[in-house]
Simulated scan of single mutants.
Amino acid sequence: MKIIVMSDSHGDKETVKAVSLQPGDGYFHCGDSELVFTDPVFSEMHKVRGNCDFDNHFPRQSLVTVGNKKVLTVHGHEHGVKESLTRIYYSAKENNADIVLFGHSHLYGTEMIDGVLFVNPGSTMQPRGGRKPTYAVVEWGETAAVTFKDMDHNVVDSITFKNF
C-alpha cells in the first residue's frame, strides 16, 4: 500500500497538481490548501479543513481505508500538534486508525506510537526551520516506510519502521 500525503500548500495549485501525479493507492491533503473544496485538482484526493481554509465544505477530519489500513487525516490545529501528539494519539485510538496524517506545523516528521504511524508531510509551499518544501510517501507492507520528498521529487529524508 502506498499513499501520497501533502499539506499546507497555501493556494499553490501547481504543487498540489504535481504531487498528485505521483503513483499511489491514495492521495491526501492535510489542510490549508486555501482552495475551494470542489477544485478539480482535488478530484482523487481525500482532504480536510485547515485553519486557513474558509470553504466550509471541507470536513474537519477524514477516516478512510486504503488497502487494509485505516487512515485518519486532520489538519492538526485542533489537536495541539505543535505542542505534542497526545491529543491526536487519542483521536487515533478512538478511531482505530493505523495511520494518522496531519499538518499545521509546516515541519515534516514521522513517529510510530503503539503501532500507529503518525506522519506530518511538512509544507509544499511555506516550510519552516530552513527546510525545503516537502510532501510524504508512505509505503506499508512488511515494513512501514515514510519518505519525504522535495518538489523536484528528490528524497530529503526517510525512515523505516520494522517492528510495529
Score class of each variant (00 low, 15 high):
H106R: 13
T65L: 03
K132Y: 03
L21R: 04
H77P: 13
Y108I: 04
V155H: 12
M6F: 12
T15N: 00
K149M: 14
G141N: 14
E44P: 00
K13P: 01
V71R: 09
N68A: 04
Q61N: 12
V146W: 14
V138I: 07
V156G: 00
L85E: 15
H79E: 15
Q22T: 08
G115F: 08
H77R: 04
M45I: 06
A144E: 05
T143M: 03
R60N: 14
N163Q: 13
K47M: 14
D12T: 00
G26I: 07
N95W: 01
G31F: 06
S123C: 11
R87F: 06
E111R: 15
V36A: 07
A136P: 12
G26M: 08
G67D: 15
D25M: 07
P59L: 11
N56M: 06
N56V: 00
N95T: 11
V36T: 09
V66Q: 04
F118D: 13
G122Y: 02
V66I: 15
N96G: 07
H29C: 04
V138Q: 01
L101R: 05
V64S: 11
L101N: 03
N68K: 15
H57C: 05
V64T: 15
E14S: 07
L107P: 01
L85M: 14
D55T: 08
A92E: 09
V116S: 02
H10E: 09
L117C: 06
D8H: 07
K47G: 01
R60W: 11
L85Q: 07
W140K: 07
L35Y: 03
P23S: 08
R49T: 05
Q126C: 02
V41S: 10
A92R: 02
K149G: 07
H153E: 10
V36C: 00
V100H: 12
D152Y: 02
F148E: 04
Q22N: 12
E44M: 08
